[in-house]
Design a protein around this nucleic acid. Structure first.
Length: 200
DNA sequence: ACACTGATTAACT
DNA sequence: GTTAATCAGTGTG
């Protein structure tokens, strides 16, 4: 049915908002010492290139970020904000810039490992935010540029027949957002970072 | 070498 | 709902 398969790089060679929506319900997997840490992706945001004021590629103000965001789709972009690492996947059509931010996952495997990485928070707080989930998944700057198509330590798995509704809202924590909703999340999922009403 | 900036979080009221 | 903490990354000089 679906033309684009998650295991192919093509999947990420599309507009970031399309990719962001289709990543919902997929499984983010981290292998560490042959153990699996994994979770269902429940919340994403899409960022664009030179014309997106919230993007770090905006107006090529940072040539460094611009170059990362036009690099090969399917590679990771990991960087720090407010002392938290944020996990993005480079996603764009050829010649454009773009990325999808993974904002929250629902823990599936390796919950003990997550707790070790984060201290001892409530289970809901393990991965219900972009900075929280990178800590629980042991993801840091070393994974910047990592290829999740070929990679064995971080990759994304498909899952059969998971049913859910998708909601959208404005992006969170953004000063000057675009006029459309570029945040996507699974309706009524308790691991979504923040419940917010749609703004049209 | 220095100054500024958050795509956040936790801890408040 | 609001706000302070906190520091690596980035650009500029």
């Amino acid at each position: 049915m679906e033309k684009f398969v998650l295991s192919d790089r093509d999947f990420f060679e599309r507009e970031p908002d399309i990719v962001a929506k289709e990543l919902l319900g997929k499984i983010l997997v981290r292998t560490i010492n042959k153990k699996r840490i994994s979770g269902i992706i429940v919340e994403t945001e899409s960022y664009f290139g030179e014309d997106d004021p919230a993007s770090r590629a905006y107006k090529r103000k940072s040539e460094r970020f611009y170059n990362k965001m036009i690099s090969t789709p399917g590679h990771l972009l990991v960087y720090m904000v407010h002392n938290n690492y944020l996990l993005n996947i480079i996603s764009h059509k050829k010649g454009k810039a773009g990325a999808v931010l993974i904002r929250a996952v629902e823990p599936v495997e390796g919950i003990e490992e997550m707790i070790k990485g984060r201290g001892k928070p409530q289970e809901r707080d393990l991965t219900s935010g972009p900075g929280k989930l990178t800590k629980s998944f042991y993801i840091d700057k070393n994974f910047d540029g990592y290829d999740i198509i070929e990679g064995k330590e971080i990759f994304i798995e498909d899952r059969t027949n998971l049913k859910f509704d998708i909601e959208s809202s404005r992006r969170i924590g953004v000063k000057r957002d675009l006029e459309e909703n570029y945040r996507f999340y699974i309706k009524n999922n308790p691991f979504v970072s923040k419940i917010s009403k749609n703004i049209f």
